[in-house]
Design a protein around this nucleic acid. Structure first.
Lengths: 117, 117
DNA sequence: CGGAATCCCGGTAGATACTG
DNA sequence: CAGTATCTACCGGGATTCCG
């Protein structure tokens, strides 16, 4: 087993980590994933959970997530129409990483608070 | 111990994960961190290791990283001048996360390759 | 060598209005 | 309800030039 591919990458485009982080780091994306960790959510649910997000942006995020295989989109042919978004196993796996990021970031804030004392 | 703060966040600005990922996800940043994982590097080293990066962008990244406490900047008053950048413990901790991201992303590519077969 | 200053371009994402 | 269609503004980041 050799080193991780990333080591070899020289440009951002070639680097999987860069590509992944650029994707997940786009505005609202982490919060969308976070809410979906609680279970499937409807488009309108997410809009309510994310006050300030525009319909276009939310649609963009959901499309991108689906395209990356992180979420699924299920249409229930009812009246009124119902559409549910849910994380795939891979999406949930990414959620785990977001969790570790959160822990890392909060260590920071704690240290900062301590230093400020 | 209650839930992670992130859960409570509703806007991207309030969310530590969003802020962190927006920061780390900016172009070239992961690669800069990656190279620093090998040890301290000089400005010129990094420019050579990152073909295509502009002086401004590299300076921006290094400033931001230093401001976030992820790197240190050491000036050796020699002639010609020498400046070294190195990861702090926190910076290295973030490197660990990048590593998990890399593993996550490569699972993806392997699955994709399999599906494409 | 290790940057800072300036200019500029392209893409991201927000606002708004409308539709199946 | 669950989006799409446009149009715009902002700024991240690249190219270039110059300085201590």
């Amino acid at each position: 087993m050799e080193t991780l591919q990333v080591k070899a990458a020289v440009t951002p485009e070639e680097c999987v980590v860069t590509r992944t982080l650029a994707f997940v780091g786009s505005r609202w994306t982490p919060l969308v994933i976070w809410h979906l960790l609680d279970g499937p959510r409807r488009y309108g649910d997410l809009r309510r959970l994310l006050p300030g997000i525009s319909p276009k942006t939310l649609a963009d995020r959901l499309h991108a997530l689906e395209e990356q295989g992180l979420t699924t989109r299920t249409v229930y042919p009812e009246k009124p129409p119902r559409v549910e978004y849910a994380l795939t196993p891979r999406g949930r796996a990414l959620g785990e990483i977001l969790d570790s990021v959160a822990r890392w970031a909060e260590e920071d804030e704690r240290a900062g608070a301590r230093a400020a004392t």
